[in-house]
Amino acid sequence: MSRTGNWLAAPVVLALIATCLVPMGVLFAYSFFQVDFVAINTDPTLKNYAKIIGSETYRSLIGRAFLSGAVVVAITAVIGYPVAWFVARRGGEWKSALLTLLLVPLYTGDMVRIFAWRVILGAEGVINRFAQWAGLITEPIQVLLFSPIASHLVLAYNFLPFMVMGLWLGYEALDDALVEAARDLGAPPVAVFRRVVLPMTLPGLIAGGMMVFVMVVGDYMTPQLLGGASGVTVISAINDLFGTAFDWPLGSAIACTLLALLGLFLAVAAYALSRMNLGRSLISGEA
């Protein structure tokens, strides 16, 4: 069976090159072009990148995208930890059924989910009507929909299953004897979590966090359709430059900048992850 794998992988690699790597390469090339009226001038220039670096707008859009990613990672981690613990430790024979049940809403599709959230969060929606009925508020809360609150809530909803999967893997690798030992030695619950559970489940947290972060930064539909004025994101800016504004080179340059930053982020996270697996015995020896 020598090298059969190469032959099997060849068509897959070709498909990936044709439909993914070539488009990314062409995008990179376009980022050095410029628009002259309606034609594209292919003399290489760095003007697009200079424009991005010099523009307050684009810098803050990229910064905001990364901030949103971090916020949603934090929200999903806080929501996800108890769930992951429950599935890993109390799931029993229902463990895989619980995980499947958690993943199923992912397959309802972007549009349907966003549509449903609009119904839930709207002025006449489920939450406002319920709060009015219960006498908690007299006027509907308008900021529930078309606001950063709405888009971050729904982003957290969308990607929570990925975080729980990561944390669940983390818990599966955690030895409960360590938690018990810390407790027996008199550590309060917060210290047990911070000094034992968190470091030991960190690989799962990083893996889940990486996925959530990348998907939040790259999401287009959710902020667009639920974020209102805050729906202008770096991704929607790229979309506009390819659509109405017709500046493909600048759009390409923003896309490449974003990809480079995302790649850097992923590389750091992956490096941390690999060191952790290697140094796991060392860490547990210290603890």
Partner: peptide, 9 residues
């Protein structure tokens, strides 16, 4: 890769 970036590529 963000879906929209792959799409424009």
């Amino acid at each position: 890769i963000p879906r929209l970036i792959l799409a424009v590529g």
